[in-house]
Design a binder for these strands. Structure first.
Lengths: 407, 407
DNA sequence: GGCCAATTATTAACCTGTTAAATTTAAGGT
DNA sequence: ACCTTAAATTTAACAGGTTAATAATTGGCC
């Protein structure tokens, strides 16, 4: 697995990436891992230390002759980044320090039926409170990332869809939030952000994998050689709208038989609601903004042994498995990660059924056994990924590093 | 559209790419197109001329003041490359000069039931004959590319499937062919090669598009920012095995409802054969290695106004359209190119139906109107793409350029 | 305590590809 | 003939990397 970004990333970026991933490394180890020479590492690390991004912290105490290796680690308090995952039914905010460690976090209700202005105001207030509580001064915040569903226009920082309501279409989300927070804000696809987060903060066994993100809807992300697959305009991997054999449920996208319409949380909850007795027994309420809460009730019923709940979830999982087969065949993957709040309770169940479908149907099954993993960070993966993206790509304002941390 | 390869390709490679694409350019134009400075262009071009890869040829005669621009072009006879597309039912061989112009070509029957050894022997004989006829000396041949169906192991140069027969599985194809031809041989996926060829030799309006390749089977290729999407091990975009809503035909891959099994040429021919009267009228014979010949007979009947032929082809085209929708939604594309011998006659019909499906169902349809094009090189796109790949990526043996033409 | 060997870190010299600025070359226009 | 303009080239400097030599720090050994 090639941890550092593309082969061509600058030495400084690769050093920072490696330190973030591994926590603490000596110069010699950095040289080995990057393939650069020890001299280059010395020259790369020096300004990073001078600019306060990296610190020497102790030494490698393994016994042996010679000068002991001096250990390096990121200066955790040098910078911070905020990751915000927003959805109709859930919101997750995390604050990471420069080393990628979470120093604060919160889970909140989603946007519900509220408009973008009100949402932005509420988000900014929560972020402000979190930063205060964690004692992070504003000028040490590199930026924030807003991870949400697509399609989006990343350049302009706005959604290109009327979901969850018409006021959201082309509302200048990142501009509004940036003004309130006083730091730059990036927009990102939630599933891609989760994939990115899983790659840098989780422990996938490979640098090329797909991720299925399930919150209110279903999204997908693909990481190839450690980089996010973006396609023409970063609206790739709309796995929620793969039309599946046998499907016919109408979908918000205008089509029918989409994975999301057949097997997403809303579809599962709707199915439970269709049987009044069942809905009653599982305590499913059917409130418009309570889809994930209802889904969680069904999930807990399954865990408590309810057969009907199990049947509904298994049906959904098999559908998702079919979508995963298409994902894997088209993108040439052998690893799929599941992330998103819908998998908090049901991760193991979906893992099992998606794996079964892949083992039955993926084209590459004979060459390499398909792997399905539940994210190590199921419900905050997208927020963490967004914050990490900020840490990794935003230009650092430190004097001599203005151009050193660049993309 | 960013014509030159990735942003990071070396100056020399980008200059060669641009000259190959445009035919003839001045230094000033090269500087504009690459974004490099005039000084860099001068310094890059000088050794290319010294090594005989580039020549000055006349000047830009547009009237005006100042020193006239001197035009540069590739030295066409400096090197050559061979592209070979092989399939169960067809083979196409092309020889390109260093400028990417076809100097020889041949269409032959496919592998049929023959084994790999016999096929390699026959291919080598044909290539030898073509090179002789075109007067290309062997030491001016940079290499050859073998474009065929997946899954493949590019490193080892062998197929990872028992198609078309068990002897092909893990037979050292490129090694055997390289030994017979006396030049290095690359293995490639036919659809990816066609996409690559379409990008460099055709005229797609964008540098990010998908391609559907239909010969005996159906394959897919995706070009993103001018580079082939390869996935984990270059076996990506198996669009022939996307399971479509409503499908149930059993497929060679072990699944059912795959696009290839429902809508590929074999499926269309099988459908014609199922009706004895129809088969008789269309002169469809059903010989195992004559699928494309039969498909062509159906296509010509359609063109002659046969309603039943039209219905069969239209049904196939709509299926392909559904697969294209999934391709476009997952890879975030807005352009799809059709290539491969099956589209020689039927290109316009498929183009129309695939476009209709995309306009009805692609998620991005509201943002950008989907485009469907028939390749400018329908039946030789894969062979041409393979040869171009050789020209673009193989190290050139010229003394000072040993490392200059590198990847 | 002092020296040696091993290991790590740094320095110096150099190489490649790049840019910015100055210079040379070749046509027109007058 | 001479000036103006545009194109092409040369030059110097720099950025980021390399290798080779040098310096620094330690454990083990006498």
């Amino acid at each position: 697995m090639r941890r550092p970004g593309g082969v061509r990333a600058s030495a400084a970026r690769r050093v920072l990436d490696l330190l973030r991933a591994e926590g603490t490394l000596s110069r010699v180890e950095l040289a080995e891992l990057t393939g650069l020479t020890a001299a280059t590492i010395t020259n790369t690390v020096r300004p990073l230390i001078a600019d306060g991004l990296v610190r020497e912290s102790g030494r490698d105490e393994r016994p042996g002759r010679g000068q002991p290796r001096r250990l390096l680690r990121l200066a955790a308090d040098a910078w911070h980044a905020v990751g915000i995952q927003v959805d109709r039914t859930t919101t997750t905010i995390v604050v990471l320090d420069f080393a990628g460690v979470r120093v604060a976090g919160a889970s909140l209700p989603g946007t519900g039926g509220r408009g973008p202005e009100e949402t932005v105001r509420a988000l900014a207030a929560h972020v402000d409170a979190l930063l205060d509580r964690a004692g992070v001064p504003r000028e040490r915040v590199l930026g924030a990332a807003l991870a949400t569903h697509g399609p989006q226009d990343l350049e302009r920082g706005m959604l290109l869809t009327a979901q969850p309501g018409p006021a959201w279409l082309e509302y200048p989300l990142t501009a509004a939030l940036a003004e309130r927070l006083g730091v730059p804000v990036l927009l990102e696809n939630d599933a891609s952000a989760a994939a990115f987060g899983e790659f840098w903060a989780g422990s996938p066994p490979t640098d090329t994998f797909g991720l299925i993100y399930m919150a209110s809807g279903i999204g997908g992300g693909v990481i190839v050689d450690g980089e996010v697959y973006r396609g023409r305009a970063s609206n790739a991997v709309e796995i929620g709208h793969v039309a599946l054999a046998g499907g016919r449920a109408p979908c918000v996208c205008g089509g029918s038989g989409c994975a999301q319409a057949e097997a997403g949380p809303q579809a599962v909850v709707a199915k439970a609601l269709a049987d009044a007795g069942l809905a009653e027994r599982l305590a499913v309420r059917g409130e418009p903004d309570g889809t994930l809460a209802d889904f969680d009730r069904i999930a807990r019923a399954w865990r408590a042994g309810d057969r009907d709940a199990a049947a509904m979830l298994e049906r959904s999982a098999r559908w998702i498995g079919r979508a995963a087969v298409t994902l894997v065949n088209l993108f040439d993957l052998d690893t799929v990660v599941l992330a998103g709040p819908a998998f908090t309770v049901t991760g193991t169940l979906y893992r099992e059924h998606v794996a079964a479908e892949l083992e039955r149907r993926a084209l590459s099954r004979a060459l390499r056994r398909p792997q399905v993993l539940v994210s190590s960070n199921v419900d905050s993966a997208a927020a963490v990924g967004g914050a990490l993206h900020v840490l990794r790509t935003m230009r650092i304002g430190a004097p001599r590093l203005a151009d050193r941390g660049r993309a």
